[in-house]
Nucleic acid binder design. Structure first.
Lengths: 229, 229
DNA sequence: ACCTGAACACCGTTCAAGT
DNA sequence: ACCTGAACACCGTTCAAGT
């Protein structure tokens, strides 16, 4: 069916679009990470020359921005209704964002380096709006919104690291066991804490870890500002 | 005095050391960011050939790890005494860590991609130890420690972005004004929140922003677990 | 033990020339 | 308007050969 990777030129008339370029870039990023995305590799998979890419996209960085933006846009639309207050809504927004970032690990590493991703700003905006209506004082809303957003991105970036190493080793369980073993090997003199907790990290769940920190932030908000209905 | 950048070979007998290589790498990173650090540029400043670098360091990634590690090691040693409980100690540790990351903005962007930075692990260990002695339950200590550490790195990475843009524009005030203006220009239909807060961001202070989120995390910890003395 | 310098296999980006 | 393909100016890394 798909003549995707066969070389030979693409049929005439059927011209490339910016969307098609970005879509294929996302596929490469999912398969082989940021390092796998080279202009030449992308061009080859689109059965065209490297130069063509630059007709549709300014440069490689812009391409990464666009790739992030398309994925995050999908995440935006799927906002479920929540019963509970605004902080519960933020919680569920953050969780679905984490799921998205988990499926496309390259986003968490690229977003901190970039400014040009509108959908990321819209997500930040959404969090800020929710905080405002919850009752966080006006002069704190932006700081708190950014803190939450930063936390989500930070955890996502960290998860990426494991995702890449898992891919390199065999299964996720194997990787967890190996990491736990490596921590246990640490000199308890220098790493008393990490050496000690090594055992429980055999069953470490990224999502559970994420929720712990997120709920601390939300608990902090609740303890500092009561809801204004 | 310094014949630093003059070309010509380095005197014999005076052989390069791994420390000297890393020290010069840090200088380049401080001056021109991660992209500025190329093996060739580094070799030239050390008045040697590109190949020599690989005698002292495995590869470019290892060099970045080492650069991060030397800087974070310095941060580690300068731990001030604090009056207050363990959470106050964490707070001051986080603040001094942020200062370090602020002076070397490339660290915040590289650390999430890396695993091989011992001093970063020691800092995480320190946070965990403090949480344990504060009284966070054993099965939460690691998650909470990671949440705090992730938050610090995340904010640092974000600050880096502004640091780089500030360097590109003129002064910090100009940059703040410009960013505030850009936010004000946003379509209030799509970005109701960000459009609204644009004005107060003219005096936005990274450190104040950082403290806001950090204190929320700490308040969350206090509200969930009372200190066990 | 430590360095040299050339070579290899790549990059992103540009641009005249084509259709 | 959209694409081609060669060229430019770089990369990181390796490695025989030197001292």
């Amino acid at each position: 069916m798909s003549a995707q990777r066969t070389s030979g030129r693409r049929p005439k008339g059927e011209s490339l679009t910016r969307e098609a370029v970005v879509r294929e870039a996302v596929r490469i990023l999912d398969e082989s990470g940021e390092r796998g995305l080279t202009v030449r590799a992308l061009a080859e998979r689109l059965r065209t020359g490297a130069g063509s890419i630059y007709w549709h996209v300014n440069n490689r960085d812009a391409l990464l921005d666009l790739a992030c933006d398309t994925i995050l846009s999908e995440c935006e639309s799927g906002e479920a209704d929540v019963d509970g207050d605004e902080l519960d809504a933020i919680r569920s927004l953050a969780l679905s964002l984490l799921d998205t970032l988990d499926q496309h690990p390259w986003i968490g590493l690229h977003l901190p380096r970039s400014t040009g991703v509108p959908s990321a700003m819209r997500l930040l905006d959404r969090i800020g709006t929710l905080l405002a209506s919850y009752g966080v004082p006006a002069d704190r809303q932006f700081f708190v919104a950014t803190a939450i957003f930063t936390y989500v991105l930070g955890v996502a970036a960290q998860m990426t690291r494991s995702a890449l190493t898992v891919a390199a080793t065999h299964t996720r369980d194997e990787w967890l066991a190996e990491r736990s073993a490596r921590l246990a090997e640490l000199d308890p003199q220098i790493y008393p804490f990490l050496h000690g907790v090594a055992a429980q990290l055999r069953t470490h769940d990224d999502r559970e870890q994420f929720v712990t920190g997120l709920d601390l932030l939300l608990a902090g908000i609740r303890s500092q500002w009561d809801s204004v209905p």
